[in-house]
């Protein structure tokens, strides 16, 4: 098993390296000149040259890549051209704020999606099942900003003014000091992700419930609760983990739009500001971060898949 996991890990590292390359090339291709963006239209050519020199922008491309890559490894993500401070400092607090959103949405949607999917599969063909399927399809069809706006209308402004529609915390105060402002962003992300997990879990569970070993467990007189938890769910988890991983990875990118919508001080906001300011180092750092989340989440899904399958587990022993 460990060999299999190590191989997956090696692949992940290789993919991450490819991502650094792509991110670097992509920022090179961005139109415009960072120095001019920072200094404004009135800047003299001398000052632009001086800033280029200061930022190391006149060095050859490969050297700039290696310098940057070395920085990434040593935890030095460079200097923000806009704020003149180190990128790590700029992002430090914001990563925490975004993680609160991500983890909150991930936990709620995974647990909710698995439970709802299982429940629906157990009542296959009945009204409950059709309702869950229909609703999840409708919600899945809506883009995240539509859901966000709809929630603001429903729960913040017009219908039921319960939750704040924007983040109230002043800069510097941690977002979780006022939990009420987290509700709508987390709810939005949860609603976007849950339908896919529910539908996948329903389909997989339906298949597992029709399998010979579930029928056999019932014919052995095992109580239904144990049949579900011991004989059915473990077999559905493996395939569903892959879908959950894709959804959670999507969250890392989806957070950008949602943070923008709720004026939430996370990395999504920071990314939008950085792109507007042509703050190349920050864009690179955040893109790399989001890619990292993608890779880690998928790696975890692969490991869950291996762990829940005794055949794969045994391959290792050999």
């Amino acid at each position: 098993m460990f060999r299999l996991i190590l191989r997956r890990l090696a692949i992940s590292v290789a993919v991450l390296w490819l991502v650094t390359l792509l991110v670097f090339v992509a920022t090179l291709l961005l139109p415009g000149d960072p120095a001019r963006a920072i200094l404004g239209q009135q800047a003299t050519p001398e000052r632009i040259a001086a800033l280029n020199d200061q930022l190391g922008l006149d060095a050859p491309v490969w050297q700039r890549y290696l310098d940057w890559l070395g920085g990434v490894f040593t935890g030095d993500l460079g200097t923000s051209a806009a704020s003149q401070g180190p990128v790590t400092e700029l992002l430090g607090g914001r990563i925490g704020a975004s993680l609160v959103l991500l983890v909150g949405a991930a936990v709620i949607s995974t647990a909710g999606g698995l439970a709802l999917g299982t429940w629906s599969a157990l009542r296959r063909g009945r009204a409950v099942d059709h309702t869950v399927s229909g609703l999840s399809l409708v919600v899945a069809a809506l883009p995240e900003f539509v859901i966000g706006v709809a929630l603001i209308v429903l729960l913040s402004t017009t219908v039921l003014p319960v939750f704040p529609s924007v983040t109230l915390a002043p800069p510097g105060e941690p977002v979780w000091s006022r939990p009420i402002q987290l509700v709508l962003p987390i709810l939005t992300l949860t609603l976007v992700v849950t339908p896919y997990i529910t539908r996948m879990m329903r389909a997989t569970m339906s298949e597992v419930l029709d399998s010979g070993y579930v029928e056999m467990a019932r014919l052995k007189g095992i109580p239904e609760r144990v049949v579900i938890t011991r004989h059915a769910v473990p077999h559905a988890i493996g395939p569903v983990a892959q879908v959950i991983a894709i959804q959670l990875a999507w969250l890392a990118g989806g957070v950008v739009v949602v943070e923008f919508l709720f004026r939430y001080p996370g990395i999504g906001q920071a990314l939008i500001d950085a792109v507007n300011n042509r703050d190349v180092e920050v864009v690179q750092a955040i893109t790399l971060l989001i890619a990292g989340v993608y890779i880690v989440v998928n790696l975890i899904a692969d490991i869950v898949g291996i762990m829940t399958n005794p055949k794969l587990r045994a391959e290792v022993a050999r």
């Binding site: 019932r218 007189g221 473990p234 077999h235 399958n309």
Partner: peptide, 24 residues
Amino acid sequence: RRSLRGSTVAYIPQDPAASLNPAL
């Protein structure tokens, strides 16, 4: 009925490969 199944009346299925839980 559940208490009868497996203790008083038992079932032996056609396809053992499909009827044994592969993860137990």
